[in-house]
Design a binder for these strands. Structure first.
Lengths: 356, 356
DNA sequence: CCGCTCATGTCAATCGATTGCACAACTCCT
DNA sequence: AGGAGTTGTGCAATCGATTGACATGAGCGG
């Protein structure tokens, strides 16, 4: 028996033609120009209120829907923003996308607003480049790139020559683009400081891949504050191949096998923390009694655990709002003197970082 | 101190103009028509190979990028597919979106391919309707709707009059649209059958909201097989307000408080299962020794638990492939005699459904 | 050497909405 | 009454690519 079976149903369907502005104009006995103005938000005042209402009523009645392609062609602006996200499974990224979308849609009421086009970067050879080219061909008015890497610098720079490009969540150093990011160095330091406050003396971190700037910064901030607070960090630089739970489990095994054990563990994200916790359970250990533990990102899983996890909240709202603000400002005026901003994360203390 | 601080950097940037077909034609001393044909995939044979190569070389050199808006306007086709997803945090939905996107991009090599436009249904008053209208204004060639509800029927029907609309993951009964869905009834039955095989006699299910067809079907299938296999189901119809872990926890409390306890529990999704597990742990109980438990969706969390969960794998690949196939066929030929398909899910046995 | 076909290209109309400019009808003011 | 504004609409050009109709010239058989 095949693993998946299928049941089937068959049917058909007939198409319907859409009405265009010319036809609507003919029906109403007015010029297309008048219709265009009556339906627009910024030029509506040029039309007498009586005809304006007549036109609007007729338009909705006839189910008239303007062809945005034609409008874009003529106008040279599409009122569209391309949002490029590296990984749609990442909770933080999706939250940022959501908030940006909500933000951009908000002013849909007054003015034309900006319609977001979301796309995930394929892991193909030239996913980013291809996506950028697609966006530009679609004539987006701006592009927001979430979690770009240094390798994308060239492609992004090229795109930035044509339309505003805004970086969110992760900036890149090779080129200077407007960005809204998180201060991961401060985030790492925040956790170390928390451990210091709770009198931990020997601590360690389970680091995400150090090729990723995010994790590098978290590690640096954590280590810096360790030194400053006179805490001992062991083992130095326990780095993983990926920031996922299975790697967290491996790291836990290493820590448990070591002779000197830390009393507190900082996992670079909640996935790693979860892996660590699972491994602890296998060894009959519990947190925070045997190990204090702090994660990062305040993902759903960290909240729903029987013992909710102390973790670091990513400044999602701030990053999203600033990214959206940058886009709006730059779309309105390409010479806008923008400011890149770095937002500090915030520790959510749920008690698992305290000494037992 | 404010929870989030900000650091700042300021810079500026200058724009660049894009080249259009007319200019490229002037540079090369050929007609725009020749360029159009040389660059197209289907009419390229009308141009001599020498000029074709000359044009292509010059085009890439000049960084010429055709304006898809203009092309769409003239052609009446955008080679674009709108993908509407109800919840981007849902792992199954995102996996389906991903596979559909990958599938649609695949034939980008030969032929123009279809570019997916992804958007999340706002939870606003008329999220679906608004999104559909936006898509239609963008002149998408087809629309794929993931997890539509019966309430969307009217809006979908209207859209379907203009372009092909394909439903994925969840079908609706009010109208007859091509769809690629999962046989949730069979999924529920699968779990009950598994329990029967492992000699459970008294079992129960933690149901997702029964207003959602998905959960209703799972419940029905499970109950049907319970009766057929002569198992006792208690308490009948333990339904939750949302399919999330906190609700699973509440359900667990109810079950533990009851006098006759089941030996096996079917949670309608992995989130509910997780909540149940957490509550068990709080009571010092462990699975599958105290309760056998089976979830649904094979989400990441079910895999990374210290004791990975027996769960039901959603037929993501099948659903995605069929949805993409439907779209491709219908875009090519609106009178295509389509078939809706219902794919059966598959039980992933990780041992937590067996009797202790 | 004539007419014919075929291969290459060019011409110009077209898709649908937007907008600068022109103009008519009115209001006001002296 | 006549000139200066003010409104409200219409006209027509325009955005950039596509494509059916047509022109040109080469090649070729009779």
């Amino acid at each position: 028996m095949p693993p998946f079976q299928a049941k089937t149903i068959v049917r058909m369907r007939k198409p319907v033609k859409r009405i265009n502005m010319r036809e609507l104009a003919a029906n109403l006995g007015v010029d297309r120009a008048t219709i265009s103005r009556a339906l627009s938000s910024d030029k509506a005042h040029l039309v007498s209120s009586s005809t304006r209402e007549r036109i609007r009523a007729a338009a909705t009645l006839a189910g008239y829907r303007p062809d945005l392609m034609a409008a874009t062609l003529r106008r040279g602006r599409s009122n569209t923003v391309g949002i490029m996200v590296s990984d749609m499974m990442n909770e933080v990224l999706i939250r940022v996308v959501r908030e940006i979308v909500a933000d951009l849609n908000r002013d849909h009421l007054k003015g034309p607003g900006l319609t977001p086009l979301i796309a995930e970067t394929g892991d193909g050879s030239d996913g980013v480049g291809h996506l950028l080219r697609t966006f530009l061909s679609q004539r987006v008015d701006a592009i927001i790139s979430l979690t770009s890497t240094e390798g994308d610098a060239e492609a992004l720079e090229e795109a930035a020559a044509e339309v505003p490009v805004v970086l969110a969540v992760r900036g890149i150093t090779a080129i200077d683009l407007p960005s809204a990011t998180c201060d991961d160095e401060a985030g790492g330091a925040l956790v170390a400081e928390h451990f210091a406050t709770h009198h931990h003396r020997v601590i360690c971190q389970i680091q995400g891949p150090q090729t990723v700037a995010t994790f590098k910064n978290r590690a640096a901030g954590f280590s810096r504050l360790c030194r400053e607070a006179g805490m001992r960090e062991i083992p130095q630089g326990l780095s993983t191949a990926a920031a996922v739970s299975s790697e967290g489990r491996l790291a836990a095994d290493a820590i448990l096998a070591s002779s000197t054990r830390p009393t507190a563990v900082f996992a670079h994200n909640d996935g790693l923390a979860l892996g660590f916790i699972e491994a602890m359970r296998n060894h009959g250990l519990a947190y925070p009694d045997d190990f204090a533990i702090v994660g990062f990102n305040n993902t759903e899983i960290s909240r729903v655990l029987a013992r909710p996890l102390t973790t670091v909240e990513y400044p999602v709202a701030q990053v999203s709002r600033h990214a959206a603000a940058l886009v709006r400002a730059l779309v309105g005026n390409r010479d806008f003197a923008w400011e890149s901003q770095v937002f500090a994360p915030m520790l959510i203390d749920r008690g698992t970082g305290r000494k037992c």
